[in-house]
Simulated assay, not measured.
Amino acid sequence: MKFMEFKHKDIYVKTHTSIIVTREVNEKDRKQQNELVYANVIDIDSRVQAMFAQFHHSRKKSDVFFRISHAPRIGEKDYDKNSLYVYPSGKYKHMSLREDDTFVTGLVVSEKVLERQKDGYIIFAWDGNIHEKLFWTIDSYYETPLLEEWTPYLYEQLIKSKGLVPLNVHDFSNDNPELVVYELLVEEDVLDGCISFGLQTGALILTEDEQVQEVV
């Protein structure tokens, strides 16, 4: 478990967090930043709600960041004192669920996870089966025709071209060891090109039945 802290002028909020997902961004004349995609926060309700509020205030992007640090147990002295700084980007949604009389679990999720955006879509595969989730994503949100058995080929092509980029999963409680998260960064024209190239080279094959269905 880690602490997730927010400081801005006279505002200070701290909650526990068990898992966050970030994407690395390199900007001109600035150090690499870790943009926050997803966070699970756990604490008393007032602290969780206060943390939610920080994602809705309009401040300068450079002024806003969250510090992730070790949450020491009572009496613990020899622990990692390094910190990870993460930055919000874009719009977020949140929801909370009461665990018991004391604690509330809150989820903070980028809108890129919830629906397709102009600059991409973020795919969560909690069971590690990214091929299945990639197929479902393209079938649900894109116009590119895709057979399920073609997904491994498309996955490999997108990874090579960096059209599909792995994001960083920080599982502080080790409760989700299989989770992988990717960001799909291409539009239909690129996806269509990958499929067409695969068919032309023989890497992908249409069976006779599938060809008849396409004609019909």
Rank of each mutant, 00 (worst) to 15 (best):
Asp119Trp: 07
Gly106Phe: 09
Val109Asn: 00
Lys118Asn: 11
Val180Met: 06
Ile130Asp: 05
Phe135Leu: 02
Val108Trp: 03
Thr102Glu: 14
Asp100Met: 10
Leu97Tyr: 13
Asp101Lys: 04
Ser173Glu: 13
Val109Thr: 13
Gly120Phe: 03
Leu146Asn: 06
Leu184Asp: 05
Leu167Lys: 03
Leu134Gln: 01
Ser173Asp: 11
His131Glu: 15
Leu97Pro: 00
Ile122Ala: 06
Glu143Gln: 09
Pro177Tyr: 05
Arg98His: 11
Glu156Pro: 04
Glu111Leu: 02
Thr105Asn: 14
Glu143Ala: 13
Gly128Tyr: 01
Glu132Gly: 10
Glu99Pro: 04
Trp126Gly: 10
Glu156Trp: 13
Glu178Trp: 12
Ile123Val: 08
Glu143Gly: 05
Tyr141Asp: 09
Glu148Asp: 06
Lys133Tyr: 07
Asp119Tyr: 09
Lys112Cys: 00
Glu115Arg: 12
Val169Trp: 11
Tyr142Pro: 09
Ile130Trp: 00
Asp100Thr: 09
Ile159Gln: 15
Phe172Ser: 07
Gln157Ile: 03
Asp175Lys: 15
Thr151Asp: 12
Phe172Ile: 03
Leu147Asp: 12
His170Trp: 12
Ile123Thr: 02
Tyr142Cys: 07
Glu132Lys: 14
Val180Phe: 04
Asp175Tyr: 13
His131Tyr: 13
Leu167Trp: 07
Trp126Asn: 10
Lys160Gln: 10
Leu134Arg: 00
Val181Thr: 04
Tyr153Pro: 03
Asp100Ala: 09
Gly120Ile: 04
Glu183Met: 14
Asn174Tyr: 11
Val186Asp: 09
Asp100Ile: 11
Ser140Lys: 08
Lys112Asn: 01
Glu156Ile: 06
Gly106Glu: 08
Ser173Gly: 07
Tyr153Ser: 02
Lys133Ala: 06
Lys162Phe: 05
Tyr182Ile: 10
Val113Phe: 02
Ser140Glu: 06
Asn176Ile: 03
